[in-house]
Write a protein that binds this DNA or RNA. Structure first.
Length: 241
DNA sequence: GCGACAG
DNA sequence: ATCTTGTCGC
């Protein structure tokens, strides 16, 4: 029997929200301008042995946010660890300010992991954002973990038509700069919008997204996290709501 | 003023 | 995101 007093392990880092976490859209937008300056889009990642997919959903009439994280081994993509966390919602959904609504519950889920990933695949944009600070940038900066933005639709930017074959892509451009890629991960389906979050380049981001994609449009990391999330919570966790 | 607008 | 059955197509 494991001694309960030996848990949680104090050597595992605990992520917390900064003391100056914004409470209003105006404050959030101002903070993004500061954060964007700290984002690094050059490759600076360790040998990737574990990749995590993050998925956020809402329950209780959208009053409670639910974050699910699936950690897979890389490159074999076998499930290594998982966690689901819940937290009351305190910020509205505003295009461009998604991270302020989802990051609190994501940090809670990360803190429940036994093993931290070397790379994060986030649902949403990286620098393909009006102020170049999508949720993947924000999460990458707060955790220090290299992150990639993998969005199912476009927030900003434009691109040329993408051939209907897996692996094809076109640069996503906005105000004269390349901010990401419109990537085809599967023929006959909608594109994926990939952009660097933090500590990774666009080219490397595309490579990892393709490596994490098998027979479906979405990466296995995201699919497993989503499956985890939609799974009926056990009686024990129901008591916490 | 009129569209566009991650999840 | 979420509400939701069947159905069109490879």
């Amino acid at each position: 029997m494991l001694p309960v007093y030996a848990f949680p392990d104090s050597t595992v880092p605990r992520f917390t929200l900064p003391a100056d976490w914004p409470a209003t859209p105006a404050a959030a937008q101002a903070l993004q301008a500061q954060l964007a300056a700290q984002v690094r889009t050059v490759d600076d990642l360790p040998p990737v042995q574990a990749v995590a997919g993050v998925d956020v959903g809402f329950v209780e009439n959208n009053q409670v946010a639910r974050a699910a994280i699936a950690v897979l081994s890389y490159p074999d993509l076998q499930l290594q660890d998982q966690s689901v966390a819940y937290l009351p919602v305190d910020f509205p959904y505003i295009p461009g300010l998604l991270s302020f609504r989802e990051i609190p519950v994501i940090l809670a889920a990360l803190n429940q992991l036994t093993q931290l990933p070397d790379l994060l695949l986030c649902d949403g944009q990286g620098i393909a954002h009006p102020r170049r600070c999508g949720i993947a940038c924000h999460l990458g900066l707060l955790t220090g973990i290299p992150a990639i933005g993998v969005a199912k639709s476009r927030l900003v930017g434009h691109h040329a038509p993408v051939p209907d074959c897996r692996g094809a892509w076109q640069p996503l451009t906005d105000r004269g700069e390349v901010i990401g890629a419109a990537l085809r991960t599967r023929p006959g389906t909608n594109l994926l919008y990939v952009s660097p979050g933090h500590r990774i380049s666009l080219a490397t981001s595309i490579t990892y997204v393709l490596q994490c994609t098998r027979h479906y449009r979405l990466p296995e990391t995201t699919r497993l996290a989503h499956k985890l999330a939609s799974r009926r919570p056990d009686p024990y966790q129901c008591e916490l709501l």
